[in-house]
Amino acid sequence: MGFIKDERPQTICVEGTWSLSSYHYKGSKLLEQYVKGLKQKKLIGSFCPGCAKVILPPRNLCGRCHRIMDGRKTVSDRGTITCYTVSPAITKGKLKVLGMDPVETGLIKDGEILIPVFVRFDGSDSNTDTILLNAEPKAVHIGMRVKVIWAKEPQGALSDFEGVEPI
């Protein structure tokens, strides 16, 4: 049977654009210290003096007890997968991000399967959103132990943290 169709006449359209990059966004310098840590292959989270939570990457305010998270704590670069998803094979034309096709630009191999994961690093109380590399999609499971894949020559950028791989 399938879906019931609802067809309606099309009236004249007026076109317009909204340039979202014309806004002047502001950000905090919290990430600056975090990426400095990455350069030394260290994961530095913020520590809450109220509930002792360690959040990675750092944030200013604790979302639960609303205290200023002015403490810092280095956590392990090993952790546990708490959640995952598996993409279908990404082929040319399948995905577009900010107008770019990642297969065309060579970021993703044609037909590559991505495994986005949540990782809880030992000593942290938050999930870090990253990707699982060097693993078979079938092997990924909640509870899987992983470690950070560091860039060969860390630059002090978020990209120093390339992803995680099974231990």
């Binding site: 806004y23 966004y25 950000g27 990430l31 600056e32 975090y34 990426v35 993409s87 990404i90 995905l95 991000v97 990642p102 970021l107 993703i108 991505l114 986005p116 959103d129 990253t130 990707i131 630059q155 950028a157 978020l158 990209s159 120093d160 943290f161 390339e162 992803g163």
Partner: peptide, 21 residues
């Protein structure tokens, strides 16, 4: 705003693609 913020701290583009996916 958040994405641009991360991009200015050198967010790994492959990670960005995965998040976008």
């Amino acid at each position: 705003g958040n994405l641009f913020h991360a991009a200015s701290y050198g967010l790994n583009l492959k990670n960005l693609m995965a998040m976008s996916m």
